[in-house]
């Protein structure tokens, strides 16, 4: 669980927000403050004012799995195998265990035979799938995902959802512009110009957005 109180940081002004265990979608127009909030939750920025408590303590870099919206900003190393292995090596995981988990992970996105491939030869979608695996490989309790799905096709989106669903992460916060995906989350938070416009379950939140392009297409046909 994540609890935010009296937050003031750049465009963000949030008096109180509770993000329960499960998956929360963070939505909002471009420039509404979504990335700023996610970076705070991941411990990559510190709030000037207010508190964020993630499972009893302030967020720290490296505690939550994080995927950046810029595909190239996720990679530290030049080859796929090193990129996937890095979070485990930083935690001094035994070499054999690193090798096993990296091999298993790469297979799940169809890049099992490509561990020597350089990151610059991966497509945008492959880069974010690799970043997702890298974020998941230490089995974090919390996952913070910044709109990585905008680089994925239908089948890859399903694959990513399966990976997230089976990761064991207790709390997942994901920013998305895919409202069908947001509609499948347990909670939806709508940011508008740095403040919380709506928060609640998808039915409740999207009922306020029925006349907008934000309403999930899959609900238009009455399904």
């Amino acid at each position: 669980m994540i609890e935010i109180r009296d937050l003031a940081f750049r465009p963000l002004r949030i008096d109180r927000l509770v993000i329960p265990d499960g998956t929360t979608a963070l939505i909002g127009m471009n420039g509404s403050g979504k990335t700023t909030l996610l970076r705070l939750l991941a411990g990559l920025s510190r709030p000037a004012n207010g508190t964020i408590i993630l499972d009893g303590a302030p967020p720290e870099p490296g505690r939550a799995g994080f995927v950046d919206e810029y595909p190239d900003r996720n990679a530290l190393f030049s080859c796929l195998g090193d990129e996937l292995a890095a979070p485990l090596r930083f935690r001094h995981t035994p070499c054999g265990e690193v090798e096993r988990r990296v091999s298993e992970a790469a297979v799940t996105i169809g890049l099992g035979g490509d561990l020597d491939r350089t990151m610059d030869t991966l497509s945008g979608g492959e880069k974010v799938l690799a970043a997702l695996l890298s974020a998941l490989i230490t089995r974090p309790e919390t996952l913070i995902l910044d709109e990585f799905d905008s680089h994925l096709d239908y089948d890859s989106l399903r694959l990513a959802d399966e990976l997230i669903g089976s990761s064991g992460a207790r709390t997942v916060v994901r920013c998305t512009q895919n409202m069908d995906l947001a509609a499948r989350c347990g909670q939806v938070v709508v940011l508008h110009q740095g403040t919380i416009l709506h928060v609640g379950d998808p039915k409740e939140v999207f009922s306020t957005l029925e006349d907008t392009c934000c309403f999930p297409f899959s609900w238009r046909g009455g399904t």
Binding site: M29, G124, H151, Q177, C213, C214
Partner: peptide
Amino acid sequence: DEPFSALDCRAKL
């Protein structure tokens, strides 16, 4: 090449 990625729905429209 991927003109819609990262855009909100109003911008996509």
